[in-house]
């Protein structure tokens, strides 16, 4: 690895200053599970690494039924699944948090880091999109909010400008009769990158028999995570049925624009989007009905 400098700001202001001082030669460090590998392998380089784990706002989880869930950008995965509010209200996020990497990785890796790393295969992003998450960004020229589905712009690229920081992610409080699920397909049972991944969130009516709304997002099938608006919208107002789910799966498959590489082929990945859309919708429905 090339030589770097390292700093540990204690406040958001200090962090923003540190990031801005080096422009695109500064890199934010949360869990480091992607960044250190990339710096070591020469896939990214930096003059300054800014450790965000001492900035309070970036390391908090807060929840209220009014404002929903706010996850500090540097909060490691294990704190999500260990948090009672998250476990009770966001099982779709817990799905992701508990399958990223290993237990060791989950001790360090964060949803914020997963979002900022902006890998097409990021496991944390589809469920956040499905749940309507919004990214809170701060920079030298102030703060702004970006829906998570608009955050990534290409493999490893996103809307963050040099000097900008992701502070937190806000996820609305779950609606009544709602449920979500994230599944990915990997050849092993852990420790793999998704061949394809699907996050689905549904809101049902009080009877549990009809969709009010739904959101579906995909991983590993395009240069960025994919928000399948048409697939989700196709369910709104329909009765819960295999046919409706099948139609949503078909639309999700249409949104998948994968490549063939060492992890899978185009054909396999599109097929898996169909399989996983069906499975995640069915699991989300069960959760919305309180059956799980």
């Amino acid at each position: 690895m090339e030589a770097i400098e390292f700093t540990t700001p204690k406040t958001i202001d200090e962090a923003v200053q540190a990031m801005a001082s080096k422009g695109d030669r500064a890199r934010a460090l949360a869990g480091g599970t992607d960044l250190l590998v990339q710096l070591r392998g020469g896939r990214r380089s930096a003059d300054l690494v800014v450790d965000l784990k001492e900035v309070p706002e970036l390391n908090e989880i807060s929840y209220s039924p009014g404002s929903g869930l706010t996850i500090g950008a540097a909060t490691p995965c294990y704190r999500l699944y260990a948090n009672a509010d998250v476990a009770a209200n966001y099982p779709g996020l817990v799905d992701s948090a508990s399958l990223i990497g290993s237990i060791q990785i989950q001790g360090r890796a964060s949803f914020g880091g997963n979002l900022c790393n902006s890998a097409p295969s990021a496991d944390a992003i589809p469920p956040m999109i499905a749940l309507g998450a919004v990214a809170n960004i701060i920079g030298p020229s102030g703060s702004r909010q970006v829906p998570v589905e608009d955050f990534c712009t290409g493999p490893g690229r996103n809307v963050l400008e040099p000097g900008e920081l992701l502070v937190s992610i806000n996820i609305p409080a779950p609606a009544a009769n709602s449920g979500a699920n994230y599944l990915r397909f990997i050849p092993r049972n852990e420790m793999d990158i998704a061949v394809a991944g699907v996050g689905s969130a549904v809101v049902l009516d009080a009877s549990g028999q009809n969709f009010v709304s739904a959101r579906i997002a995909l991983a590993s099938v395009a240069p960025t995570p994919v928000f399948c608006k048409a697939a989700g919208d196709s369910l709104a107002g329909k009765a819960v049925s295999d046919e409706a789910i099948e139609e949503a799966a078909r639309l999700a498959m249409e949104d998948a624009k994968p490549i063939t590489d060492m992890r899978g082929t185009i054909r396999q990945r599109i097929h898996l989007v169909g399989v996983l859309t069906r499975r995640t919708l069915n699991n989300a429905i069960k959760r919305a009905r309180g059956e799980e």
Partner: peptide, 29 residues
């Protein structure tokens, strides 16, 4: 492996197991 995929370098770091290859020494402060 030096990239967090084998666990041979596992240590406990503030109460959680981590792969020490994916922690910077300066973070140990």
């Amino acid at each position: 492996c030096n990239d967090g995929n084998c666990g041979a370098c596992t240590v406990v770091f503030d109460g959680r197991i981590v792969t020490s290859c994916l922690v910077l020494g300066v973070e140990a402060q």
